[in-house]
Simulated assay, not measured.
Amino acid sequence: MKKILLVCIMIMSMLASACGNVEMTSNPNTSSEPKPEADESIIPKNTTEYCDDVFTTLDSETEKSFYGTWKVEKLLGFANSYNDASEYPTGQKIIGDEFIIKKDFFSSKGLKNYNDYQHELKNPLYRLNFICYNTGSFYRLFKTDPDALNININDKVKYIVINDSSTKLGIPLSFFIVNNDRLILLLEATNFELKKITD
């Protein structure tokens, strides 16, 4: 009995000694140290799941961003769903070409290497079809990687189509206006960055 009691006392003293040597560690969830701030640029400000379908004429702010003479500067990328009449996968025959967008006149005759895209319209009908407020809603509608188009998570993207005023038929060119300061040309499924030459 003495031996058992002695063994129990020894075990208890070892346990007490071990408990006394344990360092107190702080719980990371209760630490008083400041937490690093979240990168707000990657948090959507507008969490709308879908783009707004507006189907309206252009407002003055959009017209200012849209009208002018434009030059095709570089290929940005392709939609995931289908191809088009331009030269896949480089589209280089259109780089450097120009076209004109005015309130009462549209000409894509400067896209000289592709007959499918050469149009000249008097009094064209410009229509703002969709506005997307984040990259998620943009991808859902257009099936195009926003990163490839340099569209950031909180960018506002307007989608504009052009119709012939006499036939009311659309032409196979359309545009994205990003934050009213960038214009992207869509040739059906191929996207190009544009540079304004003149207003």
Rank of each mutant, 00 (worst) to 15 (best):
L111P: 04
G96H: 10
D155L: 06
A85D: 13
N129L: 10
I131D: 02
Y126V: 00
N163V: 02
I94C: 12
A79G: 15
L111W: 11
N154L: 03
N152F: 15
N150C: 07
I162G: 01
P124C: 04
F192L: 09
T135Q: 10
K109R: 10
L141K: 15
V161E: 08
L125K: 13
Q92N: 15
N134Y: 06
K168Q: 12
K143S: 13
K196W: 10
R182L: 04
G170Y: 10
Y114H: 15
L149M: 13
F99S: 07
V178R: 05
G110N: 01
N80E: 12
E193G: 02
K158F: 04
R182P: 05
G91N: 15
E87H: 11
N154V: 01
N154M: 07
K168G: 05
N83S: 12
N80S: 11
D164H: 02
A85V: 04
S107M: 00
I151E: 05
L173S: 01
Q118T: 09
N191S: 15
Y88A: 11
G110Y: 06
N191Q: 09
F175R: 08
S108A: 04
L121N: 08
D147A: 14
P146W: 01
A189T: 11
L125A: 05
I153N: 09
V178K: 10
L194R: 03
T90F: 11
N179F: 01
G136H: 12
G96M: 06
P89R: 04
E193P: 03
L128D: 05
K122Q: 13
D164Q: 01
T190D: 08
Y126R: 03
V178D: 08
Y159L: 01
Y117V: 02
F105K: 03
N152M: 13
C132W: 04
I171G: 05
H119A: 10
E188R: 09
F138S: 04
E193K: 14
T90S: 15
N150R: 13
D145M: 00
T144K: 01
V178Y: 06
R127M: 11
Y82L: 11
Q92M: 13
S86D: 12
R140L: 12
I160G: 02
F130V: 01
L111G: 03
L183R: 08
I160A: 02
D181C: 01
K168S: 13
S108G: 09
N152T: 15
K195F: 04
Y159R: 06
G136F: 14
I100V: 15
T144I: 01
K102L: 01
K158N: 09
L76I: 12
V161M: 07
E98N: 14
K143A: 13
N80Q: 08
V161T: 14
P89M: 09
L173M: 09
L128I: 03
N154K: 05
T167L: 06
N129E: 13
L187M: 13
E193S: 13
F106K: 01
N134T: 00
G110H: 05
V161N: 10
K156T: 15
K158D: 07
A85T: 06
R182K: 14
K158P: 00
K196S: 08
T167H: 08
